[in-house]
């Protein structure tokens, strides 16, 4: 059995609404159209396609942030569509790490607090959290930035912080949505090297959405999407 199994998954945005007894139609966007996909544990997969083709929606579905309106989604054998909001949140906290294009860091707390965020939701003793944060910051070579605020860091440093936060929970699955999109080429390559290392050493399953062919080549294989469907 594959680690991730999507079968005829359908996601639509926008719907028909009734507005003061008149039917007002809102344009529907079919973000995922009967999408089927299987990814094994430990694979590094790149998703490519034009803007609006459904890459982010696919990552949001796999990351349990979005429930599909149709089809089935199994993660490590568990049916995600049957889970409630709290169960999905717990699963996300324990098994999924996210990296996004614009880093998604809370600007008004320090780097170490940003990195510790997922662990604070688990009610782990503070000492243990501090130890883990120190280890991960050291591993990503940003220990000296622990007391800084995100707005004081460069783009590459911010993405390292985001990776540190994604890795602190030791997730099985890492979802990266355009992780190099806001970085220069050199820094982007550094980030991709980190992802490759994580995949090779930790056997972490990684799904990375990107526009960049060079970056996508780092993956084991590439999935192409068009209009909400996987085309190759």
């Amino acid at each position: 059995m594959s680690y991730i199994e999507l079968e005829n998954v359908k996601v639509e945005f926008g719907q028909e609404r009734t507005f003061i007894s008149k039917r007002r139609k809102v344009a529907k966007v079919v973000a995922l159209n009967d999408t089927s996909l299987k990814i094994n544990e430990g694979e590094f997969v790149a998703i490519m396609g034009k803007s609006g083709c459904g890459k982010t929606t696919l990552l949001n579905v796999v990351g349990t942030l979005l429930k599909p309106q149709g089809g089935a989604f199994l993660l490590d054998g568990r049916n995600i569509t049957d889970m409630n909001d709290c169960e999905l949140a717990k699963l996300r906290n324990h098994e999924v790490g996210f990296i996004v294009q614009h880093f998604a860091l809370v600007d008004d707390i320090t780097v170490e607090k940003n990195v510790a965020l997922p662990l604070t939701y688990r009610h782990i003793p503070k000492k243990e959290i501090d130890k883990k944060v120190a280890e991960i910051l050291k591993r990503l070579s940003i220990s000296d930035k622990s007391k800084r605020y995100p707005y004081e860091l460069s783009g590459g440093q911010k993405q390292r912080v985001a990776i540190a936060r994604a890795l602190i929970t030791e997730p099985k699955l890492l979802l990266a949505d355009e992780p190099t999109g806001a970085l220069d080429e050199e820094t982007g390559n550094e980030i991709v090297d980190i992802l490759k290392e994580l995949n090779a050493k930790n056997r972490m399953t990684i799904i990375m959405a990107t526009h960049d062919k060079e970056i996508a080549l780092a993956a084991n294989y590439i999935i192409h999407m068009k209009d909400g469907k996987i085309v190759s």
Binding site: C86, L117, Y121
Partner: peptide, 10 residues
């Protein structure tokens, strides 16, 4: 961001 890190919608 809180949702990404594991908070529920509720």
């Amino acid at each position: 961001i809180y949702m990404l890190c594991g908070r529920s919608y509720k």
